[in-house]
Design a protein around this nucleic acid. Sequence first.
DNA 1: TAGATTGTTAATCGATTAACAATC
DNA 2: TAGATTGTTAATCGATTAACAATC
Lengths: 224, 224
Amino acid sequence: MLPKDKNTDEIDIDDLPSLSEIISDSTAQKVDPPKSVVLRLPRYYRFLRDLMNNDVMRISSSELADMMGMTASQIRHDLNCFGEFGQQGYGYDVKNLFMQIGRILGMRGRFSAAVVGVSDFCELIKFMVPGIRIKKFFDTASEEYSVCSLGDFCRRESIDILVMYVPRDAVADIVDEMESAGVKGIWNFSSTEVRSDKMAVQNICPADSLLLLTYALTDKEKKK
Amino acid sequence: MLPKDKNTDEIDIDDLPSLSEIISDSTAQKVDPPKSVVLRLPRYYRFLRDLMNNDVMRISSSELADMMGMTASQIRHDLNCFGEFGQQGYGYDVKNLFMQIGRILGMRGRFSAAVVGVSDFCELIKFMVPGIRIKKFFDTASEEYSVCSLGDFCRRESIDILVMYVPRDAVADIVDEMESAGVKGIWNFSSTEVRSDKMAVQNICPADSLLLLTYALTDKEKKK
DNA sequence: TAGATTGTTAATCGATTAACAATC
DNA sequence: TAGATTGTTAATCGATTAACAATC
């Protein structure tokens, strides 16, 4: 979309789009979206899914804002990083917006995964995780388990994502093995953080959020 | 600590501390710390615990920064919101800093909790959660389970925190019951978010972080 | 057309970083 | 004392909000 106040007959050479802008344009996405916005996308996605499940067809930014406890302005601003998904005077089509955000997030049921951890963890992951295809569970307590067998499987089956919850001292070996096996991402619940140059990583530490809860309780007490 | 360039003989009435500043001073904490800083505290806490477990006695902001993938400046800035924990020319005493942050986060092993959810969840929580005293597990699949029995227990035992992972349509009833039972905080893993005026709440949705992982993978693919 | 609501800009606000004086 | 490293300020950077023109 051209700036409104620009005379398009006069072309300023500095205003021509760069190669990277052209490339990103062709994927229908304006440059790199701010990190803060990306972090909010999964939450939008969840709320939109709930709306869909409740057969809500359309929603305005201010209705959604009320529901999610944020400002309408922020919602419109966020969504506009990725395209023009709404319609003036009408709002947003829930299903369309849901699909768009799903597409942006790469939620296409396309990625394959293996899970490694204690059996309770493996069981729970089944419940919790939609959207990736889990090919196999590796119970770390089982006799047949070894890092090699995990690596071989991931290689053989071209596994995209490893979901892991293993003891602190088992982390490094598994990560090395996964890098060599060509695994693309690690979803790590173990208490040691993973970093990798080769793979995308999400470390997730539920206990952190518990500490924020005890912080809130302590803070409330103190203020009384 | 007084500003260096201030002549303390000349007192500006507008510079006298307000009541709220005096109160917060007496708790050894400068006003309200920025939210962004509080969110980082649990991660500091974890890294310091690891250092302690490896018998590291002291650490400088830049060493810690390297380890955590952030700037030394930010670490010093963050910590100074709560007090002067370091020593010029020396760095930070790991154990002391760990204890201070634990204190700030209210991590005093003092809060009691009940857990409600499917049995795999209950089992897993045992592993994952240090620092709160779990008094009882309520398996939602069991015959004896009911919202009332959960509520009665929390009332009787003055439970501080409810850890929950229950189906979408069970959430609202439990939250109401907890409010009336005087429970102070909810640590919620269910897929419906909880909000409450009476209680502190942390909603935690692991699947969100999986979507950020698939986003990263998709983004990487696209840029190739 | 009138009413509603988006898309988009500019203003505000808060968070991060760089730099250096204070001081151990 | 000299060297190291914090505490603290000011500058930069990015995120949020408010406002309104565009437009359905």
